[in-house]
Design a protein around this nucleic acid. Structure first.
Lengths: 285, 285
DNA sequence: AGTCTAACGAACATTTTAGAACACTGGCTG
DNA sequence: CAGCCAGTGTTCTAAAATGTTCGTTAGACT
Protein backbone atom coordinates (compact mmCIF):
# COMPACT_ATOMS: atom_id res chain seq x y z
CA UNK A 1 0.00 0.00 0.00
CA UNK A 2 1.46 3.25 -1.11
CA UNK A 3 1.58 6.45 0.82
CA UNK A 4 -0.97 8.31 -1.23
CA UNK A 5 -3.34 5.39 -1.05
CA UNK A 6 -3.02 5.38 2.71
CA UNK A 7 -3.68 9.08 2.87
CA UNK A 8 -6.82 8.77 0.83
CA UNK A 9 -7.99 5.86 2.92
CA UNK A 10 -7.28 7.68 6.15
CA UNK A 11 -9.31 10.67 5.07
CA UNK A 12 -12.09 8.41 3.97
CA UNK A 13 -12.20 6.57 7.25
CA UNK A 14 -11.95 9.80 9.19
CA UNK A 15 -14.89 11.28 7.35
CA UNK A 16 -16.92 8.14 7.70
CA UNK A 17 -16.21 7.31 11.31
CA UNK A 18 -15.73 10.82 12.54
CA UNK A 19 -12.17 10.06 13.55
CA UNK A 20 -9.25 7.68 13.27
CA UNK A 21 -6.76 6.25 15.72
CA UNK A 22 -3.10 5.65 15.02
CA UNK A 23 -3.06 2.15 16.44
CA UNK A 24 -6.20 1.15 14.62
CA UNK A 25 -4.94 2.46 11.29
CA UNK A 26 -1.58 0.76 11.72
CA UNK A 27 -3.27 -2.52 12.43
CA UNK A 28 -5.68 -2.11 9.55
CA UNK A 29 -3.04 -1.16 7.00
CA UNK A 30 -0.34 -3.41 8.28
CA UNK A 31 2.17 -0.65 8.82
CA UNK A 32 4.04 0.60 11.82
CA UNK A 33 2.68 3.23 14.10
CA UNK A 34 5.39 5.65 13.05
CA UNK A 35 4.29 5.49 9.45
CA UNK A 36 0.75 6.35 10.37
CA UNK A 37 1.95 9.19 12.53
CA UNK A 38 3.90 10.59 9.67
CA UNK A 39 0.85 10.25 7.45
CA UNK A 40 -1.29 12.09 9.91
CA UNK A 41 1.31 14.75 10.36
CA UNK A 42 1.42 15.34 6.66
CA UNK A 43 -2.33 15.40 6.29
CA UNK A 44 -2.62 17.77 9.19
CA UNK A 45 -0.01 20.02 7.67
CA UNK A 46 -2.05 20.12 4.49
CA UNK A 47 -5.15 21.02 6.44
CA UNK A 48 -6.94 17.87 5.41
CA UNK A 49 -7.25 16.49 8.91
CA UNK A 50 -7.05 17.62 12.46
CA UNK A 51 -4.46 15.84 14.44
CA UNK A 52 -5.31 14.57 17.89
CA UNK A 53 -3.46 12.58 20.45
CA UNK A 54 -3.77 9.04 19.33
CA UNK A 55 -5.27 9.80 15.98
CA UNK A 56 -7.07 12.44 14.02
CA UNK A 57 -10.50 13.83 13.26
CA UNK A 58 -11.88 15.32 10.08
CA UNK A 59 -11.55 19.03 9.71
CA UNK A 60 -14.37 21.09 11.06
CA UNK A 61 -17.57 19.54 9.90
CA UNK A 62 -19.54 21.95 7.83
CA UNK A 63 -22.48 23.44 9.53
CA UNK A 64 -25.10 25.84 8.41
CA UNK A 65 -25.97 27.95 11.38
CA UNK A 66 -28.77 30.43 11.82
CA UNK A 67 -28.27 32.62 14.77
CA UNK A 68 -31.04 34.34 16.59
CA UNK A 69 -31.71 36.38 19.65
CA UNK A 70 -31.01 34.71 22.92
CA UNK A 71 -33.98 34.95 25.13
CA UNK A 72 -34.79 31.34 25.20
CA UNK A 73 -33.52 30.31 28.57
CA UNK A 74 -36.53 31.98 30.09
CA UNK A 75 -38.89 29.56 31.76
CA UNK A 76 -36.91 26.64 30.45
CA UNK A 77 -38.22 24.19 33.02
CA UNK A 78 -41.80 25.12 32.29
CA UNK A 79 -41.23 24.91 28.56
CA UNK A 80 -39.67 21.52 28.87
CA UNK A 81 -42.56 20.17 30.89
CA UNK A 82 -45.08 21.69 28.53
CA UNK A 83 -43.20 20.30 25.58
CA UNK A 84 -43.27 16.82 27.02
CA UNK A 85 -46.95 16.97 27.51
CA UNK A 86 -47.46 18.21 23.98
CA UNK A 87 -45.17 15.56 22.56
CA UNK A 88 -47.19 12.90 24.33
CA UNK A 89 -50.12 13.86 22.10
CA UNK A 90 -48.14 12.99 19.02
CA UNK A 91 -48.43 9.38 17.97
CA UNK A 92 -46.29 7.42 15.54
CA UNK A 93 -47.18 8.02 11.95
CA UNK A 94 -48.82 11.35 12.49
CA UNK A 95 -48.27 14.47 10.47
CA UNK A 96 -47.80 17.54 12.61
CA UNK A 97 -46.99 21.14 11.97
CA UNK A 98 -44.90 23.25 14.31
CA UNK A 99 -44.79 26.97 14.15
CA UNK A 100 -41.96 29.16 15.31
CA UNK A 101 -41.09 29.93 18.89
CA UNK A 102 -39.07 28.67 21.77
CA UNK A 103 -41.78 26.52 23.21
CA UNK A 104 -42.49 24.74 19.95
CA UNK A 105 -38.75 24.27 19.62
CA UNK A 106 -38.81 22.51 22.95
CA UNK A 107 -41.61 20.34 21.59
CA UNK A 108 -39.49 19.46 18.58
CA UNK A 109 -36.74 18.28 20.88
CA UNK A 110 -39.18 16.04 22.67
CA UNK A 111 -40.45 14.52 19.45
CA UNK A 112 -37.31 12.51 18.90
CA UNK A 113 -38.02 8.87 19.13
CA UNK A 114 -41.55 9.00 17.82
CA UNK A 115 -41.49 6.94 14.69
CA UNK A 116 -42.79 7.72 11.27
CA UNK A 117 -43.52 11.35 11.86
CA UNK A 118 -44.00 13.92 9.18
CA UNK A 119 -43.27 17.38 10.43
CA UNK A 120 -44.13 20.60 8.70
CA UNK A 121 -42.51 23.73 9.97
CA UNK A 122 -41.61 27.29 9.14
CA UNK A 123 -38.98 27.46 11.83
CA UNK A 124 -35.35 26.83 11.06
CA UNK A 125 -34.41 25.87 14.61
CA UNK A 126 -37.20 23.34 14.66
CA UNK A 127 -36.01 22.01 11.33
CA UNK A 128 -32.48 21.85 12.60
CA UNK A 129 -33.49 19.79 15.59
CA UNK A 130 -35.45 17.32 13.50
CA UNK A 131 -33.11 17.17 10.55
CA UNK A 132 -31.25 13.90 10.24
CA UNK A 133 -33.48 12.29 12.79
CA UNK A 134 -33.97 9.02 11.04
CA UNK A 135 -37.56 8.61 12.09
CA UNK A 136 -38.84 11.89 10.83
CA UNK A 137 -39.83 13.27 7.45
CA UNK A 138 -39.23 16.93 7.53
CA UNK A 139 -40.87 19.46 5.27
CA UNK A 140 -39.68 22.99 5.50
CA UNK A 141 -42.16 25.58 4.33
CA UNK A 142 -40.79 28.09 1.91
CA UNK A 143 -40.84 31.75 2.56
CA UNK A 144 -38.97 34.91 3.24
CA UNK A 145 -36.43 34.65 6.00
CA UNK A 146 -37.17 37.13 8.73
CA UNK A 147 -34.20 39.30 9.41
CA UNK A 148 -33.65 38.80 13.09
CA UNK A 149 -35.46 35.60 13.52
CA UNK A 150 -34.68 32.26 11.99
CA UNK A 151 -38.04 31.53 10.53
CA UNK A 152 -40.00 31.96 7.37
CA UNK A 153 -43.06 34.06 6.71
CA UNK A 154 -44.92 35.61 3.87
CA UNK A 155 -47.39 34.62 1.20
CA UNK A 156 -45.23 31.77 -0.01
CA UNK A 157 -45.29 30.20 3.41
CA UNK A 158 -49.02 30.62 3.68
CA UNK A 159 -49.65 29.15 0.27
CA UNK A 160 -47.35 26.26 0.98
CA UNK A 161 -49.32 25.45 4.07
CA UNK A 162 -52.49 25.09 2.02
CA UNK A 163 -50.98 22.13 0.26
CA UNK A 164 -50.87 20.01 3.36
CA UNK A 165 -53.22 18.61 5.94
CA UNK A 166 -51.82 17.58 9.26
CA UNK A 167 -53.25 15.74 12.22
CA UNK A 168 -52.00 18.22 14.71
CA UNK A 169 -50.78 21.78 14.64
CA UNK A 170 -48.64 22.67 17.61
CA UNK A 171 -48.29 26.35 18.06
CA UNK A 172 -46.84 28.88 20.39
CA UNK A 173 -47.86 32.40 21.22
CA UNK A 174 -46.33 35.57 22.50
CA UNK A 175 -49.37 36.47 24.51
CA UNK A 176 -52.71 34.98 25.47
CA UNK A 177 -55.76 36.94 26.52
CA UNK A 178 -59.49 36.33 26.61
CA UNK A 179 -59.47 37.37 22.97
CA UNK A 180 -57.16 34.61 21.92
CA UNK A 181 -53.51 34.04 21.17
CA UNK A 182 -51.26 36.80 19.90
CA UNK A 183 -47.90 37.18 18.23
CA UNK A 184 -45.61 40.16 17.94
CA UNK A 185 -45.28 39.77 14.20
CA UNK A 186 -48.13 39.91 11.77
CA UNK A 187 -46.45 37.51 9.42
CA UNK A 188 -46.09 34.96 12.15
CA UNK A 189 -49.72 35.45 13.10
CA UNK A 190 -50.83 34.74 9.56
CA UNK A 191 -48.77 31.56 9.47
CA UNK A 192 -50.32 30.56 12.73
CA UNK A 193 -53.82 30.98 11.35
CA UNK A 194 -52.94 29.12 8.18
CA UNK A 195 -51.54 26.24 10.17
CA UNK A 196 -54.65 26.02 12.28
CA UNK A 197 -56.87 25.99 9.22
CA UNK A 198 -55.11 22.98 7.78
CA UNK A 199 -54.96 20.87 10.90
CA UNK A 200 -57.41 18.45 12.42
CA UNK A 201 -56.43 19.48 15.90
CA UNK A 202 -54.86 22.64 17.25
CA UNK A 203 -52.61 22.53 20.28
CA UNK A 204 -51.36 25.71 21.83
CA UNK A 205 -48.28 25.51 24.01
CA UNK A 206 -47.39 28.49 26.14
CA UNK A 207 -45.87 28.96 29.54
CA UNK A 208 -47.86 30.88 32.07
CA UNK A 209 -45.84 34.05 31.60
CA UNK A 210 -47.78 34.61 28.41
CA UNK A 211 -51.03 35.28 30.20
CA UNK A 212 -52.10 38.75 30.97
CA UNK A 213 -49.61 40.33 28.66
CA UNK A 214 -50.43 41.60 25.24
CA UNK A 215 -48.97 41.40 21.77
CA UNK A 216 -49.59 43.03 18.47
CA UNK A 217 -51.14 40.54 16.08
CA UNK A 218 -53.96 38.18 16.83
CA UNK A 219 -53.45 34.56 15.82
CA UNK A 220 -56.33 32.47 17.01
CA UNK A 221 -59.49 32.82 19.02
CA UNK A 222 -59.67 30.66 22.09
CA UNK A 223 -62.53 28.71 20.54
CA UNK A 224 -60.24 27.67 17.69
CA UNK A 225 -57.85 26.01 20.10
CA UNK A 226 -58.56 22.38 20.84
CA UNK A 227 -56.02 21.90 23.54
CA UNK A 228 -54.02 24.38 25.56
CA UNK A 229 -50.99 23.21 27.47
CA UNK A 230 -49.43 25.51 29.99
CA UNK A 231 -47.84 25.30 33.40
CA UNK A 232 -49.34 25.73 36.82
CA UNK A 233 -48.02 29.24 37.19
CA UNK A 234 -51.05 31.00 35.77
CA UNK A 235 -53.38 32.82 38.04
CA UNK A 236 -56.56 31.06 39.22
CA UNK A 237 -58.56 33.79 37.52
CA UNK A 238 -56.96 33.08 34.18
CA UNK A 239 -57.50 29.42 34.66
CA UNK A 240 -61.20 29.99 35.03
CA UNK A 241 -61.72 31.84 31.77
CA UNK A 242 -59.32 29.52 29.99
CA UNK A 243 -61.23 26.44 30.97
CA UNK A 244 -64.44 28.12 29.92
CA UNK A 245 -63.25 29.05 26.47
CA UNK A 246 -60.82 26.32 25.47
CA UNK A 247 -62.01 22.81 24.82
CA UNK A 248 -59.23 21.19 26.82
CA UNK A 249 -56.69 22.71 29.15
CA UNK A 250 -53.75 20.88 30.66
CA UNK A 251 -51.63 22.35 33.42
CA UNK A 252 -48.25 20.72 33.86
CA UNK A 253 -46.17 20.89 37.00
CA UNK A 254 -42.57 21.51 36.05
CA UNK A 255 -41.28 21.61 39.60
CA UNK A 256 -42.39 18.10 40.36
CA UNK A 257 -39.74 15.80 38.96
CA UNK A 258 -40.92 12.89 36.97
CA UNK A 259 -40.00 9.34 37.67
CA UNK A 260 -38.11 8.00 34.71
CA UNK A 261 -34.70 9.29 33.87
CA UNK A 262 -34.45 11.15 37.12
CA UNK A 263 -34.32 14.70 35.96
CA UNK A 264 -34.40 17.07 38.84
CA UNK A 265 -35.09 20.16 36.89
CA UNK A 266 -34.17 23.55 38.14
CA UNK A 267 -37.39 25.13 39.29
CA UNK A 268 -37.18 28.87 39.33
CA UNK A 269 -37.68 31.08 36.36
CA UNK A 270 -34.69 33.08 37.38
CA UNK A 271 -32.36 30.12 37.36
CA UNK A 272 -31.62 30.34 33.73
CA UNK A 273 -28.32 28.57 33.60
CA UNK A 274 -28.83 25.64 35.82
CA UNK A 275 -27.97 22.38 34.30
CA UNK A 276 -29.14 19.71 36.59
CA UNK A 277 -27.08 16.68 37.17
CA UNK A 278 -29.50 14.03 36.19
CA UNK A 279 -29.84 12.49 32.76
CA UNK A 280 -29.67 14.54 29.65
CA UNK A 281 -32.30 16.70 31.15
CA UNK A 282 -30.95 20.13 30.56
CA UNK A 283 -32.87 22.27 28.25
CA UNK A 284 -31.27 25.61 28.62
CA UNK A 285 -32.96 26.97 25.56
CA UNK B 1 -12.10 8.21 21.44
CA UNK B 2 -9.53 10.91 21.52
CA UNK B 3 -9.60 14.18 23.33
CA UNK B 4 -10.30 16.44 20.41
CA UNK B 5 -12.92 14.09 19.12
CA UNK B 6 -14.63 14.26 22.46
CA UNK B 7 -14.43 18.00 22.47
CA UNK B 8 -16.05 18.23 19.09
CA UNK B 9 -18.75 15.83 20.14
CA UNK B 10 -19.40 17.66 23.37
CA UNK B 11 -19.87 20.94 21.58
CA UNK B 12 -22.12 19.29 19.08
CA UNK B 13 -24.32 17.76 21.74
CA UNK B 14 -24.35 20.97 23.70
CA UNK B 15 -25.49 22.93 20.68
CA UNK B 16 -28.17 20.44 19.76
CA UNK B 17 -29.56 19.66 23.17
CA UNK B 18 -28.99 23.01 24.71
CA UNK B 19 -26.68 21.58 27.35
CA UNK B 20 -24.65 18.62 28.49
CA UNK B 21 -24.13 16.85 31.77
CA UNK B 22 -20.87 15.38 33.00
CA UNK B 23 -22.33 12.06 34.03
CA UNK B 24 -24.23 11.66 30.81
CA UNK B 25 -21.21 12.45 28.70
CA UNK B 26 -19.00 10.10 30.67
CA UNK B 27 -21.49 7.32 30.23
CA UNK B 28 -21.93 8.03 26.55
CA UNK B 29 -18.23 8.25 25.76
CA UNK B 30 -17.11 5.54 28.09
CA UNK B 31 -14.68 7.68 30.01
CA UNK B 32 -14.33 8.66 33.61
CA UNK B 33 -16.07 11.67 35.03
CA UNK B 34 -12.75 13.37 35.62
CA UNK B 35 -11.89 13.20 31.96
CA UNK B 36 -15.12 14.89 31.02
CA UNK B 37 -14.56 17.52 33.64
CA UNK B 38 -11.17 18.26 32.23
CA UNK B 39 -12.68 18.44 28.78
CA UNK B 40 -15.31 20.88 29.91
CA UNK B 41 -12.72 22.90 31.76
CA UNK B 42 -10.62 23.17 28.66
CA UNK B 43 -13.55 24.05 26.44
CA UNK B 44 -14.69 26.64 28.95
CA UNK B 45 -11.20 28.09 29.09
CA UNK B 46 -11.28 28.41 25.34
CA UNK B 47 -14.61 30.14 25.48
CA UNK B 48 -16.35 27.42 23.55
CA UNK B 49 -18.68 26.42 26.34
CA UNK B 50 -20.01 27.78 29.57
CA UNK B 51 -19.37 25.61 32.52
CA UNK B 52 -22.17 24.86 34.93
CA UNK B 53 -22.50 22.59 37.88
CA UNK B 54 -22.85 19.12 36.55
CA UNK B 55 -22.24 20.03 32.96
CA UNK B 56 -22.11 22.89 30.55
CA UNK B 57 -24.17 24.93 28.14
CA UNK B 58 -23.22 26.31 24.77
CA UNK B 59 -22.01 29.87 24.69
CA UNK B 60 -24.49 30.68 21.96
CA UNK B 61 -27.38 28.43 22.73
CA UNK B 62 -29.72 29.92 20.23
CA UNK B 63 -28.36 28.64 17.00
CA UNK B 64 -29.99 26.43 14.48
CA UNK B 65 -27.33 24.21 13.00
CA UNK B 66 -27.58 21.93 10.03
CA UNK B 67 -24.68 19.62 9.73
CA UNK B 68 -23.59 18.20 6.44
CA UNK B 69 -20.90 16.19 4.80
CA UNK B 70 -17.39 17.38 5.23
CA UNK B 71 -16.01 17.65 1.79
CA UNK B 72 -16.06 21.35 1.48
CA UNK B 73 -12.31 21.72 1.80
CA UNK B 74 -11.77 19.75 -1.36
CA UNK B 75 -10.68 21.91 -4.24
CA UNK B 76 -11.32 24.90 -2.06
CA UNK B 77 -8.89 27.14 -3.89
CA UNK B 78 -10.53 26.37 -7.19
CA UNK B 79 -14.00 26.82 -5.79
CA UNK B 80 -13.12 30.11 -4.27
CA UNK B 81 -11.73 31.45 -7.51
CA UNK B 82 -14.71 30.19 -9.44
CA UNK B 83 -17.06 31.69 -6.88
CA UNK B 84 -15.42 35.07 -7.17
CA UNK B 85 -15.80 35.04 -10.87
CA UNK B 86 -19.45 34.05 -10.58
CA UNK B 87 -20.12 36.69 -7.96
CA UNK B 88 -18.71 39.30 -10.26
CA UNK B 89 -21.61 38.62 -12.60
CA UNK B 90 -24.10 39.59 -9.93
CA UNK B 91 -24.95 43.26 -9.85
CA UNK B 92 -26.72 45.27 -7.15
CA UNK B 93 -30.47 44.92 -7.21
CA UNK B 94 -30.52 41.63 -9.02
CA UNK B 95 -32.57 38.60 -8.12
CA UNK B 96 -30.56 35.40 -8.24
CA UNK B 97 -31.23 31.81 -7.40
CA UNK B 98 -28.62 29.49 -5.99
CA UNK B 99 -28.95 25.76 -5.94
CA UNK B 100 -27.31 23.39 -3.54
CA UNK B 101 -23.67 22.37 -3.49
CA UNK B 102 -20.36 23.45 -2.11
CA UNK B 103 -19.45 25.57 -5.08
CA UNK B 104 -22.65 27.55 -4.99
CA UNK B 105 -22.11 27.90 -1.29
CA UNK B 106 -18.77 29.48 -2.05
CA UNK B 107 -20.58 31.83 -4.41
CA UNK B 108 -22.98 32.79 -1.65
CA UNK B 109 -20.03 33.71 0.52
CA UNK B 110 -18.70 35.96 -2.20
CA UNK B 111 -22.01 37.72 -2.62
CA UNK B 112 -21.73 39.65 0.59
CA UNK B 113 -21.44 43.30 -0.03
CA UNK B 114 -23.55 43.38 -3.15
CA UNK B 115 -26.47 45.57 -2.26
CA UNK B 116 -30.14 45.06 -2.78
CA UNK B 117 -29.96 41.43 -3.73
CA UNK B 118 -32.85 39.04 -3.64
CA UNK B 119 -31.68 35.49 -3.30
CA UNK B 120 -33.76 32.40 -3.85
CA UNK B 121 -32.31 29.13 -2.66
CA UNK B 122 -33.12 25.58 -1.72
CA UNK B 123 -29.91 25.16 0.22
CA UNK B 124 -29.81 25.68 3.93
CA UNK B 125 -26.09 26.42 4.07
CA UNK B 126 -26.52 29.04 1.40
CA UNK B 127 -29.42 30.50 3.33
CA UNK B 128 -27.39 30.48 6.49
CA UNK B 129 -24.57 32.39 4.86
CA UNK B 130 -26.91 35.04 3.52
CA UNK B 131 -29.24 35.26 6.47
CA UNK B 132 -28.90 38.45 8.43
CA UNK B 133 -26.89 40.08 5.72
CA UNK B 134 -28.55 43.43 5.81
CA UNK B 135 -28.32 43.99 2.08
CA UNK B 136 -29.99 40.80 1.05
CA UNK B 137 -33.58 39.61 0.85
CA UNK B 138 -33.56 35.90 1.30
CA UNK B 139 -36.29 33.56 0.16
CA UNK B 140 -35.96 29.96 1.15
CA UNK B 141 -37.81 27.58 -1.07
CA UNK B 142 -39.93 25.11 0.76
CA UNK B 143 -39.54 21.42 0.37
CA UNK B 144 -38.63 18.12 1.90
CA UNK B 145 -35.36 18.13 3.75
CA UNK B 146 -33.00 15.59 2.31
CA UNK B 147 -31.79 13.25 4.96
CA UNK B 148 -28.05 13.56 4.70
CA UNK B 149 -27.86 16.83 2.99
CA UNK B 150 -29.05 20.18 4.20
CA UNK B 151 -31.16 21.13 1.29
CA UNK B 152 -34.70 20.95 0.08
CA UNK B 153 -36.17 19.04 -2.81
CA UNK B 154 -39.46 17.74 -4.04
CA UNK B 155 -42.58 19.00 -5.78
CA UNK B 156 -43.10 21.78 -3.30
CA UNK B 157 -39.68 23.20 -4.08
CA UNK B 158 -40.29 22.94 -7.79
CA UNK B 159 -43.67 24.61 -7.58
CA UNK B 160 -42.32 27.36 -5.42
CA UNK B 161 -39.70 28.08 -8.01
CA UNK B 162 -42.38 28.70 -10.58
CA UNK B 163 -43.59 31.67 -8.60
CA UNK B 164 -40.41 33.61 -9.15
CA UNK B 165 -38.36 34.98 -11.99
CA UNK B 166 -34.74 35.75 -11.37
CA UNK B 167 -32.07 37.46 -13.40
CA UNK B 168 -29.51 34.78 -12.82
CA UNK B 169 -29.55 31.17 -11.75
CA UNK B 170 -26.21 30.05 -10.37
CA UNK B 171 -25.94 26.32 -10.24
CA UNK B 172 -23.50 23.59 -9.47
CA UNK B 173 -23.15 20.06 -10.76
CA UNK B 174 -21.77 16.74 -9.65
CA UNK B 175 -20.56 15.89 -13.11
CA UNK B 176 -20.32 17.45 -16.53
CA UNK B 177 -20.12 15.57 -19.81
CA UNK B 178 -20.85 16.33 -23.41
CA UNK B 179 -24.46 15.54 -22.58
CA UNK B 180 -24.75 18.27 -20.04
CA UNK B 181 -24.59 18.71 -16.29
CA UNK B 182 -25.50 15.92 -13.90
CA UNK B 183 -26.36 15.49 -10.25
CA UNK B 184 -26.31 12.43 -8.06
CA UNK B 185 -29.81 13.03 -6.84
CA UNK B 186 -32.86 13.16 -9.08
CA UNK B 187 -34.60 15.62 -6.82
CA UNK B 188 -31.69 17.99 -7.03
CA UNK B 189 -31.62 17.62 -10.78
CA UNK B 190 -35.27 18.58 -11.02
CA UNK B 191 -34.69 21.67 -8.91
CA UNK B 192 -31.81 22.54 -11.15
CA UNK B 193 -34.00 22.37 -14.22
CA UNK B 194 -36.76 24.35 -12.59
CA UNK B 195 -34.32 27.05 -11.60
CA UNK B 196 -32.97 27.29 -15.09
CA UNK B 197 -36.45 27.60 -16.55
CA UNK B 198 -37.26 30.58 -14.43
CA UNK B 199 -34.06 32.50 -14.90
CA UNK B 200 -32.98 34.95 -17.57
CA UNK B 201 -29.43 33.66 -17.44
CA UNK B 202 -27.97 30.36 -16.33
CA UNK B 203 -24.50 30.19 -14.85
CA UNK B 204 -22.92 26.86 -14.09
CA UNK B 205 -20.09 26.81 -11.59
CA UNK B 206 -18.01 23.66 -11.31
CA UNK B 207 -14.40 22.89 -10.62
CA UNK B 208 -12.52 20.92 -13.20
CA UNK B 209 -12.73 17.66 -11.27
CA UNK B 210 -16.34 17.43 -12.43
CA UNK B 211 -15.38 16.81 -16.01
CA UNK B 212 -15.11 13.34 -17.37
CA UNK B 213 -16.87 11.76 -14.49
CA UNK B 214 -20.46 10.74 -14.50
CA UNK B 215 -23.45 11.10 -12.25
CA UNK B 216 -26.93 9.72 -12.14
CA UNK B 217 -29.43 12.40 -13.01
CA UNK B 218 -29.19 14.86 -15.85
CA UNK B 219 -29.79 18.49 -15.01
CA UNK B 220 -29.18 20.65 -18.03
CA UNK B 221 -27.96 20.32 -21.56
CA UNK B 222 -24.87 22.30 -22.39
CA UNK B 223 -26.91 24.47 -24.73
CA UNK B 224 -29.08 25.56 -21.85
CA UNK B 225 -26.10 26.97 -20.01
CA UNK B 226 -25.30 30.57 -20.77
CA UNK B 227 -22.06 30.76 -18.90
CA UNK B 228 -19.81 28.07 -17.49
CA UNK B 229 -17.18 28.99 -14.95
CA UNK B 230 -14.54 26.45 -14.08
CA UNK B 231 -10.84 26.37 -13.29
CA UNK B 232 -7.89 25.79 -15.54
CA UNK B 233 -7.48 22.19 -14.53
CA UNK B 234 -9.69 20.70 -17.18
CA UNK B 235 -8.12 18.81 -20.02
CA UNK B 236 -7.60 20.58 -23.35
CA UNK B 237 -9.90 18.08 -24.96
CA UNK B 238 -12.72 18.94 -22.59
CA UNK B 239 -12.10 22.58 -23.14
CA UNK B 240 -12.65 22.14 -26.85
CA UNK B 241 -16.07 20.59 -26.65
CA UNK B 242 -17.06 22.88 -23.84
CA UNK B 243 -16.32 25.97 -25.84
CA UNK B 244 -18.19 24.53 -28.76
CA UNK B 245 -21.35 23.77 -26.82
CA UNK B 246 -21.56 26.43 -24.15
CA UNK B 247 -22.24 30.02 -25.04
CA UNK B 248 -19.53 31.40 -22.77
CA UNK B 249 -16.79 29.62 -20.88
CA UNK B 250 -14.51 31.20 -18.31
CA UNK B 251 -11.46 29.47 -16.92
CA UNK B 252 -10.14 30.90 -13.70
CA UNK B 253 -6.64 30.39 -12.35
CA UNK B 254 -6.80 29.65 -8.68
CA UNK B 255 -3.08 29.22 -8.27
CA UNK B 256 -2.34 32.67 -9.53
CA UNK B 257 -3.23 35.04 -6.73
CA UNK B 258 -5.61 37.69 -7.82
CA UNK B 259 -5.65 41.33 -6.97
CA UNK B 260 -7.87 42.56 -4.20
CA UNK B 261 -10.81 43.42 -6.38
CA UNK B 262 -11.06 39.95 -7.71
CA UNK B 263 -12.46 41.08 -11.01
CA UNK B 264 -9.42 42.05 -12.93
CA UNK B 265 -8.91 38.65 -14.44
CA UNK B 266 -9.46 38.35 -18.14
CA UNK B 267 -11.68 35.53 -19.33
CA UNK B 268 -8.49 33.81 -20.42
CA UNK B 269 -9.81 32.71 -23.74
CA UNK B 270 -6.67 33.17 -25.72
CA UNK B 271 -4.32 33.67 -22.85
CA UNK B 272 -1.50 31.24 -22.35
CA UNK B 273 -2.95 28.91 -19.81
CA UNK B 274 -0.81 26.12 -18.60
CA UNK B 275 -3.49 23.52 -18.52
CA UNK B 276 -2.32 20.51 -16.62
CA UNK B 277 -2.85 17.60 -18.88
CA UNK B 278 -3.52 15.17 -16.10
CA UNK B 279 -7.23 15.39 -16.51
CA UNK B 280 -9.25 16.01 -13.42
CA UNK B 281 -6.27 17.08 -11.40
CA UNK B 282 -6.15 15.95 -7.86
CA UNK B 283 -9.67 16.89 -6.93
CA UNK B 284 -11.25 13.94 -5.30
CA UNK B 285 -14.78 15.18 -5.25
C1' DA C 1 -32.03 27.17 58.10
C1' DG C 2 -29.89 22.58 58.39
C1' DT C 3 -28.70 18.26 56.38
C1' DC C 4 -27.38 15.35 52.75
C1' DT C 5 -26.01 14.14 48.22
C1' DA C 6 -23.44 14.83 44.28
C1' DA C 7 -20.07 17.35 41.97
C1' DC C 8 -15.63 19.47 42.18
C1' DG C 9 -10.71 19.72 41.75
C1' DA C 10 -5.99 18.55 43.51
C1' DA C 11 -2.51 15.08 43.70
C1' DC C 12 -0.76 10.91 42.31
C1' DA C 13 -0.24 6.48 39.54
C1' DT C 14 -0.62 4.38 35.22
C1' DT C 15 -1.12 3.87 30.46
C1' DT C 16 -0.69 5.59 25.97
C1' DT C 17 1.29 8.42 22.50
C1' DA C 18 4.64 11.64 20.38
C1' DG C 19 8.66 12.54 18.19
C1' DA C 20 13.69 12.27 17.58
C1' DA C 21 17.47 9.44 16.15
C1' DC C 22 19.11 5.83 13.57
C1' DA C 23 18.92 1.65 10.54
C1' DC C 24 17.00 -0.77 6.63
C1' DT C 25 14.97 -1.34 1.89
C1' DG C 26 14.12 -0.79 -2.97
C1' DG C 27 14.07 1.95 -6.94
C1' DC C 28 16.34 5.33 -9.43
C1' DT C 29 20.09 8.25 -11.46
C1' DG C 30 24.68 9.66 -12.73
C1' DC D 1 28.05 -0.02 -10.02
C1' DA D 2 27.94 3.27 -6.23
C1' DG D 3 25.35 6.58 -4.31
C1' DC D 4 21.15 8.79 -3.35
C1' DC D 5 16.69 9.34 -1.61
C1' DA D 6 12.14 8.74 -0.20
C1' DG D 7 9.71 5.70 2.46
C1' DT D 8 9.58 2.75 6.21
C1' DG D 9 10.59 0.23 10.62
C1' DT D 10 12.72 0.14 15.40
C1' DT D 11 14.04 1.88 19.76
C1' DC D 12 13.96 5.00 23.35
C1' DT D 13 12.61 8.96 26.34
C1' DA D 14 9.62 12.81 27.35
C1' DA D 15 5.06 14.33 27.32
C1' DA D 16 0.22 13.83 27.25
C1' DA D 17 -3.94 11.73 28.54
C1' DT D 18 -6.54 9.19 31.60
C1' DG D 19 -8.11 6.86 35.84
C1' DT D 20 -8.35 6.83 40.95
C1' DT D 21 -8.59 8.50 45.48
C1' DC D 22 -9.98 11.82 48.75
C1' DG D 23 -10.99 16.04 51.20
C1' DT D 24 -13.89 20.07 50.07
C1' DT D 25 -17.88 22.55 48.51
C1' DA D 26 -21.98 23.85 46.02
C1' DG D 27 -26.85 22.80 45.55
C1' DA D 28 -31.01 20.24 46.55
C1' DC D 29 -34.34 18.61 49.73
C1' DT D 30 -36.84 18.79 54.08
Amino acid sequence: MTKLARHARILEIAAQEGGVSVTELARQMGTSLMTIRRDLEELAKGGKLRRTHGGGIPVEPDVARFQFSRKQHICSAQKRAIAREAASLVKPGMAVSLDTGTTTLAVARELSGIKGLTVLTSSLPVASVLHQRAECDLVLLGGAARRNSPDLVGPLTEDNLKRFRVNLAIMGADAITRDGSFANDTGVARICRAMAENAEGVVLVADSSKFGRTAFARCLGLDEIDHLITDDGCSPASEVWLREAVAEVTLVHPARPRTAGGEGEAPAAGADEQVSSGGGGNCAV
